[in-house]
């Protein structure tokens, strides 16, 4: 997980998209809530999210 976070932060730095950080934090927290409220990670096929 630490190496993942490191890589992800490097990615943000490289893309200079710091403004995304607060959005990511909120969205990820929100996403975690959704994950926790579901039993399975099987999502239906949506054309542009994969």
């Amino acid at each position: 997980m630490i190496s993942f976070l490191k890589e992800f932060f490097e990615f943000i730095k490289y893309r200079k998209k710091y403004w995304l950080i607060p959005i990511i934090v909120v969205l990820v927290l929100f996403g975690i809530l959704i994950v926790l409220s579901q039993g399975s990670a099987v999502a239906p096929f949506i054309y542009t999210i994969f």
């Binding site: 996403g31 975690i32 999502a43 999210i49």
Partner: peptide, 25 residues
Amino acid sequence: LLETYVAFAPRGFKSFSLSMPIWLR
């Protein structure tokens, strides 16, 4: 994905709620 959801918010909530679990996991 994130920027698209932000740009279209609040539309797209259903898609967001379906895509996030698979992305985050």
